[in-house]
Design a binder for these strands. Structure first.
Lengths: 244, 244
DNA sequence: AAATCGTATTGACGTGGATCAAAGGGCTCC
DNA sequence: GGAGCCCTTTGATCCACGTCAATACGATTT
């Protein structure tokens, strides 16, 4: 348990204009004046400890969240207990879009590590995006991107074999780390094999075995959650040249 | 081939105000004056013959489409030829949202039968939804609904067995027919076993066998594409009581 | 530094759905 | 209204992944 530390005002209030993630996030494409307007509506930041929920399925929907630091998973749970991880989210990505349709969230968002989000009250976002065309458009792009991403996951779940799924996953992670200024070839996964498996529609043992196979073939070096990609073209080949 | 019939003006121009699908579609929640504004931006209707593309992956994005009559499938195709059906769309549903994120479509939309869509130029939709709050909100709901739907498909593909997937599919179709005023228990599928299989991540033989099993168990009566659901609770039981 | 617990790896074996194959059956298009 | 072709069904066999089980590893706690 953390001891009680006085929180300074600058920490409480989000400020897109100062944020180095703004090129990935909602402010993308806005001019400085417009970003200031966005600053005014973005509420306080909220810290979420590892394993804690940002929101739960069924919660009323009031805001969307931009990830300021850390990472999350989203999942859906069936009555009989089965669950499916629907995505992993990194800094600059937006959480909570599922809640718009029914005014209630339809999935759970759980922090994979101690994280921080910017709270964006949705009513006020709609209001501002009626005034700021570029914000409106960027928001629509973010929603559309989520739809396109989901189609990619369907392709993966519906038509790929285990090793292809894992290769696609690793390449995707690599690409997203790269965009954020990290190494494309070496990174730390924040999720367990079980969570990767759930996302990829595989059992954790199958994920583990696929990692081992990749390691044997010299494609990656795996040490628990630490991944070093040794042969990116090799991984890509696994995806495209499916022996049909 | 239909003979050449002179097309009247009222047929050419879409008119949401006259459309019996407006409660399912973009005009939902708008007052009569607002619907008239929407009428003005919705372009001509466009007829798409069975098996023809409404748009293709890679096409530039200019408009979204509301299905006025008929039905569609969307699919994604990989370089190696594998394809994945990402959805089936019915009247009142909106197609093309995938194109917003990159200004290009990322999937194909193909008519399952002779169909007709209303063309909604996207730039003008954004413009109007800056002025009409209820339109803006309805549009956001439609996009969000698509995201939630996709999560459901991921759940299906990632954690369900073949018969559960087909049961979920049938119940979903039934529900959507019901909303449109058709029988919940008796309907005609417009897609082939192969397309159902692609959507559900199964081979067509598996789909066919699952249908036969359902028939043997008295859950449904299947005659090619004509489906009669005999035991809805039975199908639901298949879904929820997964013997874990 | 030992104890504990969650996470990961690896092996042996079972099975659900894929694959291969063949035979009808019903649309579609002349 | 008939020919051809696509679609569907069903059977036999195979294999990728799931299941069950044991062990090992690493991080955290005490």
């Amino acid at each position: 348990m953390k001891s009680v530390i006085p929180v300074t005002v600058v920490e409480i209030k989000a400020a897109c204009s100062q944020c180095n993630l703004r090129e990935l996030c909602l402010p993308f494409g806005l001019d400085p004046r417009e970003i200031n307007q966005l600053d005014e509506l973005v509420g306080a930041r909220r810290k979420i400890k590892r394993q804690q929920h940002l929101y739960r399925s069924g919660d009323g929907f009031e805001a969307i969240y931009a990830i300021r630091a850390g990472s999350f998973k989203t999942d859906v749970i069936l009555e009989d207990g089965r669950d499916q991880v629907t995505g992993f989210q990194m800094t600059g990505e937006v959480l909570g879009l599922d809640g718009i349709s029914t005014e209630h969230h339809s999935c759970n968002a759980i922090a994979l590590e101690d994280s921080e989000v910017c709270v964006i009250p949705f009513g006020r976002l709609e209001e501002l995006s009626r005034q700021v065309e570029s914000l409106q458009h960027q928001f629509h792009k973010i929603m559309s991107r989520e739809i396109v991403r989901d189609h990619g996951v369907m392709m993966l779940l519906g038509s790929m074999r285990a090793e292809e799924r894992l290769a696609a996953f690793l390449l995707n992670m690599s690409q997203r780390f790269t965009v954020r200024g990290f190494s494309p070839s070496e990174f730390h996964l924040r999720m367990t094999r079980d969570e990767i498996g759930s996302y990829l529609g595989l059992k954790l043992e199958t994920v583990s075995r696929a990692f081992s196979r990749f390691q044997d073939e010299g494609l990656v070096a795996v040490q628990q959650k630490h991944i070093r990609i040794l042969d990116t073209p090799g991984l890509k080949r696994l995806l495209n040249h499916h022996n049909n």
